[in-house]
């Protein structure tokens, strides 16, 4: 399970993050606008997920693995 920090300003942003991660086969996706957190469970590596999230056009960084 991975945690990312993503610049999200509205529902459109958080929905976009959820949508691209779902499309990439991610599960258990949690987004939180206030804390800018994105959590996802995936078989993909954190680098691959970072590339997918970067395509949203938003500033995004990898925080680390979470349980």
């Amino acid at each position: 399970r991975h945690e990312f920090s993503m610049e999200m300003t509205c529902e459109g942003c958080s929905n976009a993050a959820t949508r691209v991660l779902t499309k990439a086969g991610g599960t258990d996706i949690v987004t939180d606008l206030a804390s800018k957190k994105v959590l996802v469970t995936s078989d993909k590596s954190s680098d691959e997920l970072l590339e997918i999230l970067k395509k949203t056009g938003k500033a995004i960084t990898y925080v680390g693995p979470v349980n």
């Binding site: 459109g12 929905n15 976009a16």
Partner: peptide, 15 residues
């Protein structure tokens, strides 16, 4: 589909 506000619009236009 899925844009909710002006900032979504700007994000797409810029990107």
């Amino acid at each position: 589909e899925g844009m909710t506000c002006k900032s979504c619009v700007r994000n797409i236009e810029e990107h």
